[in-house]
């Protein structure tokens, strides 16, 4: 029982963090119907920036956020610009395009930082936190969870209560109608990519403090992000959180009761089952057909 409670708790914390990783991808998909297969690489880019600053200047990784954000926003906007250049069959060709950009980023990171594995030097992040006398976590996991929930909540508020947010929502639900109402869809798309960049940067810095980084991680993050996005039902923010926690919990339970190497297998299997049984995701309205 205690073991299960711990597994569920760890899963929940991971879920909050996974939500942060996935939500940028979900946002861009919502507005532009583009699945950015370089999203995980953008997250990883931010993590490497945190590493570079920490190893060069001793800067606390959390303080590298502004620089990481600046760089990742630029990278996200470049990706946006390029996907916008696609002339036909954007839905499919953007997959191949961003797949290519992901390869560029991964190999760029490999060239600059080598294939070595890095993690934060600061042991502060690794210290244990105990909640309710029995639930254990690392301090960094707690921080990542809180940041994730806060970011998702903030995004949800932003989409519902600000002008730009509403513009994005109306463009996602009906591009042509939004256009008729005088909104500029390209501008809304630009905003969604920019915000996705901010979220990716946050996720990247959290990744660096909670986990280890090396170039292939980007690809796995991308896969995790679209798994969650599809589970959520493309474009639904609350759905992302639920999907992410679901993946986190499945991984937590698999790790506890079987072995950690099977965690990804379990979540991938659930993903495929959901995709095949409910192509529109757990919370989606529009079908994949």
């Amino acid at each position: 029982m205690e073991l299960t409670a711990q597994a569920l708790f760890t899963g929940l914390l991971m879920g909050g963090f996974y939500g942060l990783i996935a939500v940028g991808l979900a946002l861009v998909f919502g507005t532009m119907k583009v699945i950015n297969l370089a999203h995980g690489e953008l997250v990883l880019l931010a993590a490497y920036i945190a590493y570079a600053l920490e190893s060069q200047t001793g800067l606390n990784p959390m303080l590298s956020l502004p620089i990481a954000m600046a760089v990742v926003i630029v990278a996200a906007l470049v990706t946006f610009y390029l996907t916008n250049q696609i002339k036909k069959d954007r839905e499919l060709n953007s997959l191949i395009l961003t797949f290519g950009l992901g390869i560029v980023l991964t190999n760029g990171l490999l060239m600059v930082f080598s294939a070595d594995i890095y993690s934060t030097q600061s042991s502060w992040f690794m210290e244990g936190v105990v909640i309710a006398d029995s639930l254990f976590s690392m301090r960094s996991e707690m921080i990542a969870f809180i940041v994730g929930i806060a970011a998702l909540g903030g995004l949800y508020w932003w989409l519902n209560h600000t002008w730009h947010g509403r513009a994005i929502r109306s463009v996602s639900s009906n591009r042509d109608a939004a256009k008729l109402m005088g909104m500029n869809p390209t501008k809304a798309e630009l905003w969604s990519w920019g915000v996705a960049g901010v979220l990716a940067a946050l996720a990247g810095v959290m990744l660096y403090v909670t986990s280890v980084i090396h170039p292939p991680v980007g690809h796995s993050l991308t896969i995790k992000a679209f798994v969650i996005t599809v589970l959520a039902g493309m474009g639904s923010i609350p759905g992302v959180l639920v999907g992410a926690i679901m993946i986190g919990v499945i991984e937590g339970l698999t790790t506890t009761y079987f072995q950690s190497s099977l965690a990804e297998l379990a979540s991938m299997t659930v993903f495929l089952l959901v995709l095949l049984v409910m192509p529109s995701g757990l919370f989606g309205k529009k079908g994949a057909h």
Binding site: L82, Q85, I86, N93, I96, L97, F99, G100, L101, G102, I103, V104, L105, T106, N107, G108, L110, M111, S114, A115
Partner: peptide, 16 residues
């Protein structure tokens, strides 16, 4: 190291 970078760039370029 990382020579696949050019492949990725070529792929992206060709799609556009």
């Amino acid at each position: 190291q990382g020579h696949q970078l050019i492949l990725g760039a070529m792929l992206a370029g060709m799609i556009i």
